[in-house]
Amino acid sequence: MNPVYRRRRMVNRIIMMASLLASAFGVIWLFLILLTLVTKGVPALSLDVFTERTRMSGGGLGNAILGSLIMTALATVGGTLIGISAGTWLAEYGGRSRLASLIRFINDVLLSAPSIIIGLYIYAVVVLPMGHFSGWAGMAALMVIIIPVVIRSTEDMLLLVPNSLREAAAALGAHRWLIVLRVCYSGAKAGITTGVLLGCARISGETAPLLFTALNTNQWNFFNMGSEMPNLPMVLYQNMTINSFIPAQVALAWAGALVLTAAVLILNILARVSAARSQK
């Protein structure tokens, strides 16, 4: 065979092999991390983990899981309302105007802004004036993180709704708000749900913004948002750093890590299922 052909085929094979190896390299970490979580987390799992509160010795993660659920749920609800509303304006009213482009650009930047900065920001505007750490502050920090995610997916999904549907509704005499609520939202529902679920998954694992907003406590806290709120990521952080000399606390942290990762991955998979449904 012609040597030029042979060389070209060789180069091609080498590069394709390399990209295959790169894919294996990229995927293997997921399995390694899951393997570690299962081997270290499963032995420490028990019913007590979910029902007992955190203590210096023994105990479980019940209060932390409850606190995380409360803050994440409230932040998701608040963030979804504001995010959908803002995304609606960008898609339906803002269009290509200069203000809308600016907001879109800023939103895209905030979408990947470091979460620890959001924590510092909420510390400066909520915790300092209030004088103490609180569940409200933690919720506000999580809300600031989820809002850009929801805005982005709402706008993207509304733009996918064909204009002819809007025009048909308008020709029947529907007002603009009714068109948006009844026609556009029903078309974009599945996509927006995906965005909300992804955002919810993201904030349930966030630790950095809770460090100096919600802090943490060993007590149960049922909806007393005005005081410090126990939460799962902070318990993991503390058990792996300042409490890491106690083996039982480290084991508990791995059980918590398993629970947290399972919750986040399930949310991610739900989001993907919802996205797949919206494409049909």
Binding site: S85, W89, A113, Y121, A124, W177
Partner: peptide, 30 residues
Amino acid sequence: NGLVDRVFEITTRGSALMVLLLLGTITGSL
């Protein structure tokens, strides 16, 4: 309906402007 239209647009625009407010207050407070 015209009134609802106006209120709807103003509310959603207010939410969108919150993004700018967020950026402003983050920078300002820091």
